[in-house]
Design a protein around this nucleic acid. Structure first.
Lengths: 154, 154
DNA sequence: ACATACTTGACAATTATAGTAAGGTATGTT
DNA sequence: AACATACCTTACTATAATTGTCAAGTATGT
């Protein structure tokens, strides 16, 4: 029951983007440096995030990525779904799956369905704003080094 | 964000055991036949379920497995955790993980932690009794063929 | 022109999962 | 005692997914 590191990276990167961009584009190089995520890997992630209309891009020197919407309008669940493709706990919940045709007879189906809904619901209840608000109210200095997420600073 | 098929099989098998055992041991051969799960694979699962004290075993001819407790005292979450080992959405929540030492600085940590708690909480809110009750109130006949879970009957 | 930085596809390495195989042990029945 | 049943345990293989790398391209500001 593991979230892919893709999803974890994506959320971390989006938090970084949100914190360091004040309307100005942030290059992946910057994010890569701050968050210690391989640049090429980030590029893949942001390719998806752009397709998912969560960010927009600015090409050329001084370019980079910008949030497509306000922080408060970007849900963590969105980010995760965009890079993960599927958030369903079991395959038979996926769209187009035909292995579980008679839902009424499927005892455990209801359980997995409910589980999926809880997961999605929870992640959708948290916005980028919620995550950055916390970071902004912290004392600056070491704490604002950017490595805020699951990476020991010392 | 997929649950392993191990976990899905385990829950299905436990439902089967619960339905067909009235105090009497049910052999894995039976369950294997009804649920179309490879016998050897089932053996592995029940090895874990026994260690997890969710079932007890009776050896020899006529033997099999029996629920270790009442249906109402066996939570789906327990079954899943027992065969999955880990239910945490991210690695840094695992016991003994040292990669995320300064929790206070980890912005997204809280999200994954909350997610893990929701998942566990939801699965723990459902018991075997909940699942079998539904099955028992259904009309018998084709519906009681045993293939009740994510396996089309026709 | 040149440098920056996004864009895109292909691919290799690693890991986890699913499933198979095989041999052993306990125990009830004849 | 012999046999059949069914649990017990370990080891292994194949497959798939994930993670991460590489490489070559395109757009654009200076």
């Amino acid at each position: 029951m593991r979230l892919s590191t893709r999803a974890q990276y994506a959320v971390r990167a989006m938090v970084d983007l949100s914190l360091y961009s004040q309307g100005r584009p942030v290059s992946l190089k910057e994010i890569s440096r701050r968050k210690e995520i391989p640049l090429n890997y980030l590029e893949q992630l942001f390719f998806r995030l752009k397709k998912g209309q969560i960010v927009t891009s600015v090409r050329g020197p001084g370019g980079g990525y910008v949030l497509a919407r306000q922080e408060s309008a970007i849900k963590v669940g969105e980010i995760v779904v965009t890079v993960e493709e599927q958030l369903n706990p079991v395959a038979c919940l996926d769209e187009g799956d035909r292995s579980c045709q008679r839902e009424a007879r499927c005892l455990t189906h209801t359980v997995w369905q409910g589980l999926g809904e809880r997961i999605k619901g929870f992640l959708d209840s948290i916005t980028l704003e919620d995550l950055t608000r916390e970071a902004r109210t912290r004392p600056t200095g070491e704490g604002s080094s950017g490595k805020d997420v699951c990476q020991p600073v010392g």
